[in-house]
Computed example of a mutant assay.
Amino acid sequence: MQPTSEASQRIARISAHLHPPTLQKMVESSTLRTMNCRAKGGAPGFKVAILGAAGGIGQSLSLLMKMNPLVSVLHLYDVVNAHGVTADISHMDTGAVVRGFLGQPQLENALTGMDLVIIPAGVPRKPGMTRDDLFKINAGIVRTLCEGVAKCCPRAIVNLISNPVNSTVPIAAEVFKKAGTYDPKRLLGVTTLDVVRANTFVAEVLGIDPREVDVPSGGWSCRSYHTASFVTG
């Protein structure tokens, strides 16, 4: 018995998720075009890439982006465990099409055509590690990722989470300036964690519900917005 046309299309979509095409095939085909890269029933929306999706922040962030109805395409990139996280996230019953990308050779594939790039990639601060030590490691990671952004999706909005944010944002800015793609309105340092912490500390002192407190962040960045401000408005 021959499968129906609809069944064949569903099988083809599942196969594409499990085996992402090469960059050239992605460009030549319609898989990343606005109206065609949608799960069944999905509405047009934003194409989002998360660089560092397998980390502690990246996994939670990937989950939130998959839940967001305004996200239509979600690319998950990391140097380890990217495909495992992708498989788990893609099983959620929302419309966003999820694809995983592993390692430096697939960075350009992950970034091509994206509207929003969120970067939680980097190492966390360990006991005994100074901010200078942290910066030396994460600065190199951020530089490499932003070079990919400048090449593959220069008009994308970039949200930087990698610590220390007040130092990694200038690194990203210099990369974009060198590439001729710098726009201060499109480079955002995410300070949500500082806001949440401040709200909690103030609420404890005042003896009130943290949800009733709103302390603006004092951290430096090109512009400090919440992680999902672009997606959710």
Score class of each variant (00 low, 15 high):
His91Gly: 12
Leu102Thr: 05
Phe101Tyr: 15
Val123Ile: 14
Ala87Pro: 03
Phe101Lys: 06
Ala87Met: 13
Arg125Val: 07
Leu111Asp: 10
Lys126Ser: 12
Asp115Lys: 01
Thr130Arg: 07
Thr130Ala: 04
Asp88Glu: 13
Thr86Glu: 13
Pro127Arg: 12
Thr86Ser: 14
Met129Leu: 09
Val97Ser: 14
Gly100Ala: 00
Gln106Gly: 01
Leu107Cys: 00
Asp115Phe: 00
Gln106Ile: 04
Met129Arg: 09
Glu108Gln: 12
Asp93Arg: 14
Arg99Met: 14
Gly113Asp: 06
Ser90Ala: 15
Glu108Asp: 15
Gly122Glu: 06
Ile118Glu: 03
Arg99Phe: 09
Val98Gly: 11
Ala110Gln: 11
Arg125Trp: 03
Pro124Asp: 13
Gly95Pro: 08
Val117Ser: 05
His91Cys: 14
Ile119Ala: 01
Val97Leu: 15
Pro120Ile: 04
Leu116Glu: 07
Ile119Asp: 04
Gly103Val: 05
His91Trp: 07
Lys126Trp: 05
Asp93Met: 11
Thr94Phe: 03
Phe101Glu: 05
Arg131Ala: 07
Ser90Arg: 14
Arg99Trp: 08
Ser90Lys: 08
Arg99Val: 08
Gly113Leu: 02
Val97Phe: 10
Pro120Thr: 04
Thr94Trp: 06
Val117Gly: 09
Val97Cys: 14
Thr94Glu: 11
Thr112Gly: 02
Ile89Val: 15
Val123Arg: 15
Ile119Leu: 00
Pro127Thr: 11
Leu107Asn: 02
Ala87Gly: 09
Gly113Glu: 02
Thr130Lys: 10
Gly95Phe: 04
Thr130Phe: 02
Ser90Val: 07
Asp88Cys: 08
Met129Phe: 05
Ala121Met: 01
Val97Ala: 14
Ala87Ile: 06
Asp115Met: 07
Val117Trp: 05
Arg131Glu: 15
Met114Cys: 12
Ala87Phe: 12
Leu107Lys: 11
Arg125Phe: 08
Thr94His: 04
Met114Pro: 10
Leu102Phe: 05
Lys126Tyr: 08
Leu102Pro: 02
Leu111Met: 11
Arg99Asn: 13
Pro127Asp: 15
Leu111Asn: 05
Gln104Gly: 03
Gln104Asp: 14
Arg131Gly: 12
Met129Ser: 10
Leu111Ile: 01
Leu107Tyr: 07
Gln104Val: 08
Ile119Arg: 02
Ile118Tyr: 02
Gly122Leu: 01
Thr130Cys: 08
Glu108Ser: 11
Lys126Phe: 11
Ala121Gln: 02
Val123Ser: 13
Gly113Thr: 11
Pro105Asp: 05
Lys126Arg: 15
Gly100Met: 01
Arg125Ile: 13
Pro124Ser: 13
Asp93His: 12
Ala96Tyr: 03
Met114His: 09
Gly103His: 04
Gln104Tyr: 04
Met92Val: 10
Gln106Arg: 14
Gly103Ile: 01
Val123His: 13
Glu108Gly: 09
Ser90Leu: 07
Pro120Met: 03
Asp115Thr: 03
Asp93Val: 08
Thr112Leu: 13
Leu111Gly: 03
Ala96Pro: 05
Pro124Thr: 12
Met129Ala: 01
Leu111Arg: 01
Lys126His: 08
Val117Arg: 08
Leu102Ala: 03
Met92Pro: 02
Gln106Thr: 07
Val117Phe: 02
Val97Asn: 13
Thr130Gly: 07
Gly100Tyr: 00
Leu111Ala: 09
Leu102Tyr: 05
His91Val: 09
Gly128Glu: 06
Gly100Ile: 02
Phe101Pro: 08
Pro127Lys: 13
